[in-house]
Design a protein around this nucleic acid. Sequence first.
DNA 1: TGCGGATTCAAACAATTGTATTAAATCTTG
DNA 2: CAAGATTTAATACAATTGTTTGAATCCGCA
Lengths: 231, 231
Amino acid sequence: MNNLSKTVPIKMDTQERILETAEQLFARRGFETTSLRHITKEARVNLAAVNYHFGSKEGLLKELLRMRIVPMNEKRRSMLEAFRFQNSTQPVPLENVFEAFLRPFFGTGSPGGDSEGLFLRMMGRLSAEKPGFMESIYQEHFRDIQELFINAIKEARPNLREEEVFWRFHFALTLMLSSMTQRQRLKISSHGRCQTDDIEGLIERLIAFICAGFQSPVASENSVAAMGVLS
Amino acid sequence: MNNLSKTVPIKMDTQERILETAEQLFARRGFETTSLRHITKEARVNLAAVNYHFGSKEGLLKELLRMRIVPMNEKRRSMLEAFRFQNSTQPVPLENVFEAFLRPFFGTGSPGGDSEGLFLRMMGRLSAEKPGFMESIYQEHFRDIQELFINAIKEARPNLREEEVFWRFHFALTLMLSSMTQRQRLKISSHGRCQTDDIEGLIERLIAFICAGFQSPVASENSVAAMGVLS
DNA sequence: TGCGGATTCAAACAATTGTATTAAATCTTG
DNA sequence: CAAGATTTAATACAATTGTTTGAATCCGCA
């Protein structure tokens, strides 16, 4: 075992292959159900290589997350900033806010872009499968960026109570996270009528649906659900 | 091993305890990561009881699903029917359509109601964790009921292209399925400002968000296609 | 009461898991 | 080249997994 981020090795072929393969398998089959033997065999490296380079299976995941999330959040910042500049003093339209939040899930545009949304798929799997996963990386990776976007939403919807902003942002994020892992269901249940492999179409529809969701009337705070039609 | 549903045994204490415990653990920790030893210990029954009564771990899951889904879908039908009657010849409002679809997730009202949404939580976990899970039970349990509700949506939104109806229903279902498993994240990320244990509030907000989402403008793809035809 | 099937029980099964260890082979770099 | 870092290989380990087995026990019914 040696570096996890300090001295950059010249030839990190092995580490790269492990990370790349692990991302694919975690995205497709999940974390717990993907064995190190499966990863190392697929990546054509030795079994011991994972523990040598990353210390443990959990360490591999941690490094994989760090490697993807940091540039992704940077991209989010810059995109939101660009939209701010574009709208001068006006608040950034909600569509643009969510575009800046969602699109970097599909890679930073730089080397070997993740145009297939593999990382988003992995995140969706992990968030549903590992109890407390999102909570554990929230402090480290998502606190600041979320605050940034929550504020942008507040500016775009100044009449919305803060509590409702959190609720709806939560719905939006939930929808994004599940979007890649649940695609197959749509394909089946629509009898192939929806082109689920059209990522761009998915992104557009997601943003449209979410932004429309933010137009919903405020929930009745204290007045109990009026129309109780059930027995 | 004996019956799975035919001849009702007099004393099914063991089977009931297993099913109940399994539902709780599957909902909380997932299917793969919940061992039979964990279930049987929690339910205070012998390890072999699961394989004796249900054949296998997968068989236990199958029986658990059947036991919950059948009455749930029946409740959905009756609620939608009640709303139809209430609106005579008018189409059922979208809010009511989704209320009829969502609320039975929280039990049928009959014995020992699942007011905590334990089953929905389990479904959310399974759909995200088990590849092909939803697809495998779609034919058996969800095809007819989905068609029923898709039609109700079409009546409420007659201008919406069928493809878009499928997309948005898919978003709605995705949101419902994830709503119970992702609650903890909202609690954390809102710094406790959202009352995530208020199930009724969650239901209200979900329905409101989804119905508003159905108001989103049609995806640009259509206008492009339309322009292509027109020009 | 006693027979017989249904049920429960402890024990063991084979397979898979993440991790660790050993030594030899290979590569990288000063 | 030489020293150190990396990779491979072959095992081994303890733990956990779903499943099976055969004997013990329960229980309704004759």
